[in-house]
Design a protein around this nucleic acid. Structure first.
Length: 380
RNA sequence: GGGUGCGUCGCAUAGCGGCAAUUGCAUGUGGCUGUAAACCACACGUCCUCGUGACUACGGGGGUUCGAGUCCCUCCGCACCCA
């Protein structure tokens, strides 16, 4: 993998770049659709390509469980298996430490919704989630499919990711909970750093390896992590973990982190992507970011449009002749009325989800394209 | 004409003397940020000062009972069987 910055903004930390891999190039900043189980849910890879998606991220934990990396390898690797010709990344399984651990226990996501009186500093130094156990050299998981125990640490994650064969892979980290207190994060960070160093040491393939910065919402820990991870010979960097409870904290975290990361290497913000945050995130110096929102919300009936989010399962749209978005150039907006899509949702037809997934991805990618255009013109 | 069974929220269901009354669907509202997620939560008789509040409710009418959706009588409607 090779990353080249084409233009540096003089108004912000934003940059325009090209990421070259043996499976083609990615114009950055770019949105990365999530293909957890080697598929962008409801669509074929050919269909995803038509949404202007350039790069997808699949998941180590889930593909290890099903079908298993040995099968994927035998089937000539992830690209061939899912028939996606363009670049691919795999996430390490580090997010599952959180999502199947404290995330599941507390029903809280990685961005905390602030509500007055809420208990936030509840996880201290030696806290353990109910169903996963975090150990010094990895994590003992319980499979959400059949409850079977499995162990994934840095070595296991890298071996799995090498077998899967994506262009870019991530270090195994612990994505921390926004409910964790300082002492917990401090200890977790030490452990995560050890794991990441191990990933670097153990990797034999030519895949690009991205190190992940953690440190939660604490300035000193974020800076420490960024400096430490940024100083290691990774090919790029992920910014992960919990991002506090407001837009402001997210911006702060990015501002604390970026100065410590080598400028010539790509930065990937893990799991963030509300449309309203995109400009801020890119202005902070992020080149890549993945998020389940456009695809996940699509299956819940939410369409992203210039006039905001529309919940297409609402009855009002049954008598709406307009396309989802007036200016959108996607094939869904070119062919179908809101009425039809709402009808399909109410009739529980899978095509409803397919159409919204197609539109949302196209819309997101067009949105980021617009931001790239702004950087090119020097207005951002 | 005779017999049997059945009528409970928009639809479908539970209920066998303590009931504003079960469950599913539908409907409505909200949530979802490196996917545990075609999911989850809440509401769904009316009214209000929003409460272990008031009122009206299980086809209609009457009765038994401290108390009836539940038991009895009768009427209406529906279904099936026999003539």
């Amino acid at each position: 993998m090779e990353f080249k910055v084409i233009k540096w903004s003089n108004k912000s930390r934003a940059r325009l770049g090209v990421l070259k891999t043996s499976h083609g190039e990615v114009e950055t900043p770019a949105f990365v659709p999530v293909a957890t189980q080697a598929t962008v849910k409801t669509l074929t890879s050919a269909e995803v390509e038509k949404t202007k998606s350039q790069l997808l991220i699949a998941n180590t934990f889930h593909l290890h469980l099903k079908p298993g990396e040995a099968i994927v390898k035998k089937m000539k690797g992830l690209h061939e298996y899912m028939r996606w010709k363009r670049p691919l990344m795999t996430d390490s399984g580090g997010f599952q430490v959180f999502s199947l651990g404290f995330g599941m226990d507390t029903q809280v996501g990685k961005v905390l919704k602030f509500f007055p009186g809420a208990q936030t500093e509840v996880l201290h130094q030696n806290a353990q989630p109910k169903t996963v156990k975090i150990l010094p050299d990895g994590v003992r998981f319980r499979s959400p499919i059949d409850g079977k125990e499995l162990f994934i640490g840095p070595k296991e994650s890298i071996k799995i990711q090498e077998a899967l064969g994506a262009d870019i892979i991530f270090t195994f980290d612990e994505c921390t909970s926004p409910l964790a207190a300082y002492d917990y994060i401090k200890e977790s960070l030490k452990r995560t750093h050890e794991w990441e160093k191990m990933c670097l040491k153990i990797k034999k393939s030519k895949q690009a390896l991205f190190g992940i910065v953690q440190g939660s919402r604490f300035r000193d820990l974020r800076e420490e992590s960024a400096a430490y991870i940024g100083g290691l010979p990774f090919d790029g960097f992920g910014i992960g973990g919990d991002l506090g409870s407001s837009k402001k904290t997210m911006k702060n975290i990015l501002d604390w982190t970026m100065p410590h990361l080598p400028e010539e290497k790509p930065r990937h913000l893990l799991g963030i992507g509300y449309l309203e945050d995109m400009e801020m995130v890119i202005k902070s110096g992020v080149d890549l970011f993945d998020c389940i929102v456009p695809t996940h919300y699509a299956r819940r009936g939410i369409a992203f449009t210039d006039t905001g989010k529309l919940n297409m399962s609402k009855t009002v749209f049954l008598s709406d002749k307009k396309p989802l978005d007036r200016t959108c150039k996607c094939e869904v907006c070119g062919s179908y009325t809101r009425s039809y899509i709402t009808h399909l949702f109410k009739a529980k037809e899978i095509t409803a989800m397919r159409l919204l997934t197609t539109h949302n991805l196209f819309y997101y990618n067009t949105f980021v394209e617009g931001i790239r255009e702004k950087i090119k013109k020097g207005v951002l």
